[in-house]
Design a protein around this nucleic acid. Structure first.
Lengths: 287, 287
DNA sequence: TCCTCTATCTAAATAATTTTCATTTTTCGT
DNA sequence: ACGAAAAATGAAAATTATTTAGATAGAGGA
């Protein structure tokens, strides 16, 4: 667990002095990461030994160790608070986009619910048939990605981004099938309808979406993704990276559920690709 | 520029002692990040002052500053060397995938060619028509993503993942058009054919692919993406994250090229979405 | 060969951190 | 509300880490 998470975890149990130190860390990490123990102590209006004790409390060996941990975490984690650059210089734009993507992944990882992911992977790997639904640019990408990743494991899957088709497939679903749908906003009411229909048909429904949203409420299982979004209209949604990572994770876990079958199917696909266009066997699976 | 890059940059100009220090940093950062100046000096068989001078040389104020910089960089950068976990525990799988994605983004950022990106964005924003090509699970995602991102800016774009359609569109392209294609492996020979045809038709061709690959050679402009891939067959290609980021960057830069037009088009799309299904105006653009 | 410049070291000085111990504050039972 | 015990905190001392200063050795050029 990273140090910021540890701090937030213990928030309640801090003493007055410790709370002041934690506040500085959380609000002005740039200062904290560069400060000596005396500077940090002064700013928090505590004595240096209190800072040392604070570090120990957080399972750090000493102040130096603490700073290293802080620096490690913060690089990815804390820039979130900084408003993204307004520059239109290519280098700045790239940095902004990349940092935000890394941060989104970082925040997601922190909140990741391994048990929920595992149980969804179980369901997927045991489904007789999987339907993957999503609409709009982003969620339709995720639906396709599910298909792209799961068919390789020998799972039966069909993705659809068309509401009418989704409704028909949901109606055709059976109790041994599952329907997995994504909605970044959680307000795709068509997906809600498709879930509802699938549940009536007895299928298991799984949502990748915001917690407590209409879509989340309509599904049997929810993998919640709640991330702050930037507000530059040109720069939508680093959240895509997180959804993509989640697809990766689920596909991996599903593969491990039935490794033998997955390996065989992958080998077939690979063999076909190599024979077809890549003699030296370096082709990635699916360009 | 991050500190590791700086070290690699100066490799040639280091003295004997400095080289020994640099070696330790590069090979055993885990030690370096936790070592005191004396420990590091001992291990490098130099005196502490030499280490201090080494830090200064790298534009750090002092050893503490140096360590902070090192820790910042290393968190994301250096885990690359570690073999990913072989564990199938959900938490480990997630950590592995996320770390690799962050690392891929990090490495990409380091090697990012801002000028090349800017000039491609220029071309895109000035094209009368854009054709986005890609095949296989990953590159087809990128082709669709180009469409998803660029149509919002008021650009005319059609994406295709079907080789026959690609060939027809390439043949139909005109000198004021551009063709942008992606191939993770660089060996999609069908894309090479499509590029060749498009160039014969006078259109500008742009490749997102590995440097010096057949695809790269077939295009007028190349945005090179060369990343090491893991070798767990269940875990293809954190490179997808990088391609996606690059699409983001290009779309942003293109948007800035013609901000007025982009804003108007985005407002229209947004207006339509809000009217259609999201009264409280929180809908992201495209689920 | 000798000089100069650089790289490097040792030792001293300084600065930072931790430990120890005394004091204060808080908590909790009566 | 009171007092004892426990916890929290700070001052000062001790320790440790880092930097500076000055000295020395070695490389390269006249």
């Amino acid at each position: 667990m990273d140090i910021l998470a540890r701090i937030q975890n213990e928030q309640g149990q801090f003493s007055q002095s410790e709370k002041r130190i934690a506040d500085i860390l959380l609000n002005d990490f740039d200062f904290a990461v560069n400060a000596s123990i005396v500077e940090l102590a002064e700013r928090a209006e505590v004595s240096p030994p209190t800072v040392t004790r604070f570090c120990r409390r957080l399972n750090c060996q000493n102040y130096a160790d603490f700073k290293v941990q802080l620096a490690k975490t913060m690089f990815v984690g804390a820039r979130y608070l900084n408003p993204g650059t307004k520059s239109t210089e290519p280098a700045d734009v790239a940095e902004d986009i990349i940092t935000k993507a890394q941060n989104a992944l970082f925040l997601f990882h922190r909140a990741f619910d391994a048990a929920a992911a595992q149980s969804v992977a179980d369901i997927l790997s045991k489904s007789a048939m999987i339907y993957a639904f999503g609409s709009g640019g982003n969620s339709s990408m995720i639906a396709h990605e599910f298909q792209n990743r799961l068919f390789r494991l020998g799972l039966r899957i069909s993705s659809s981004t068309d509401h009418h088709m989704q409704m028909m497939q949901a109606a055709a679903a059976r109790p041994e099938d599952s329907v997995i749908g994504s909605s970044f906003s959680g307000r795709n009411m068509e997906l809600v309808r498709a879930f509802t229909m699938a549940r009536e048909a007895g299928a298991t429904t799984i949502a990748l979406t915001q917690a407590d949203s209409p879509v989340a409420k309509a599904a049997d299982h929810v993998l919640a993704i709640d991330l702050p979004e930037g507000n530059n209209i040109f720069r939508p949604t680093s959240t895509r990276f997180v959804y993509l990572a989640l697809v990766d994770i689920l596909a991996n876990l599903a593969a491990y559920q039935n490794r033998a079958q997955s390996t065989v199917t992958l080998r077939h696909i690979k063999h076909q690709l190599v024979a077809y266009r890549d003699e030296d066997d370096k082709q990635l699976l699916g360009d």
